[in-house]
Each structure stands twice: as C-alpha cells, then as structure tokens.
Amino acid sequence: MGCFHSTAKRQHPGYEDPVDLASQTSFSVSEVEALFELFKSISGSVIDDGLINKEEFQLALFKNQRKENLFANRIFDLFDVKKRGAIDFGDFVRALNVFHPNIPMDEKIDFSFKLYDMDSTGFIERKEVKQMLIALLGESEMRLSDDIIETILDKTFSDADANQDGKIDRTEWENFVTRNPSLMKIMTLPYLKDITTTFPSFVFNSEVDDLVT
C-alpha cells in the first residue's frame, strides 16, 4: 500500500505519522488512519486547508446546521491546544483519545473539569455553571425561572462544593463525579472502538504496509 503515498502530508500542515500517533494514544495505526478519513471530511467542509476551524467543527457536530453553541465552542477550545483557532490532525487524534473507552477515568475527569472551568481559573465557579445552564435553556425548549435556576445551583453546590466556598476545585469535582458517575458518560465515545469499520476507506489511503489492528 506504500504506492499510494498520498499528498496528505503536503495538504495537511499538522499531519503526523500515524505510527507516532498510535504510539502516543490508545488507537492502533489503522484506527489513526481511519480517523484521518474523518478529519479530512471535516477539515475540507468549508476551507480545504487541512485544518478544522470552528465553523467546520460546529457544522460536523450539528450536521450542517450553522449554530453558535457555547458548549461546542468550549470543546473546540480544548481541542485547539496550540490556541491558533484551528485543530490540526495531531490535536484531533490526541483530544479524541481522551474519549476512548480504554483511557483511565482520571484523564477523563481532568478533561471534564477543564470543560466546565470555562475561564481556566482552576475552579468551576457558580457564575460559570449559571452561564452554562442559561445557554442550555437557550438551545432547548426548557423554560426555567431565575428562582428555579438558583435553586438548582444551590442544590448542586451543596452536593459538590464540599468546603462551601462557592467554587468547585479539582478534588471536589473528582469526589462529586465519583458519586455521580453518569456525569462522565459524555467523556466516553463507544464509536472510537469501531472507527475502522465506520471509515473503511482508510485502507485505500494507507501509507503503512502492514496494518496493525
């Protein structure tokens, strides 16, 4: 399959060797190559520059509906580790790796903490949680009064904020999600165990002679 030597490296500025990426993650080489098929389709949806920009990310997440969404923005920002407004292939694979079923819970808890710590202060603050609740209401049919939102925040912080200082630190978060494991469901994507069958065309573009599954 070496004869295929595609133009991936030239067209994708953040392209990294699948063998290297597989060694850094829970993915096999074949799975990294299958992820490249997904990456190509997302990164070429608006501007074919080999990078995923925020608009392309949101289009992929919301199935071609153009939506501005606080939560999708936050995920994008965490995937965009180089903080340049775009996700390259290496960023994409390493960030998705956190969502792999085989990744230790501690790494998932770290990522989820960063997800909710929107302003990166090292704490999940009440005002951030309120902002997220209001954003959620904005995208759904749910209508809740400010009193009810405050009651939900009171209950949540009385459960999660052990030292009652009005913000949730990393240890408090870990204890809270350990007691409420359903909160970690969003941190595991079963799809990641099945990507070579979802994107079988990777076989035609493989640059590796002996595919490792």
Partner: peptide, 25 residues
C-alpha cells in the same frame, strides 16, 4: 427526578457536548 436538580446532569445534555455526532454520517 433527582438529576433535574443537578446542574451538571442538565448541562451535559447539550448537543454541543455530543461528540458522537462527529461519527454519524
């Protein structure tokens, strides 16, 4: 439901957190 009083359980329902959508063609 008790979950309805857990802000994070509500927030995690956002479509913006549903990365599974990336894999659905």
């Amino acid at each position: 439901k008790p979950e309805s009083m857990n802000a994070f359980a509500l927030i995690s329902r956002s479509q913006g957190f549903n990365l599974g959508n990336l894999f659905e063609k």
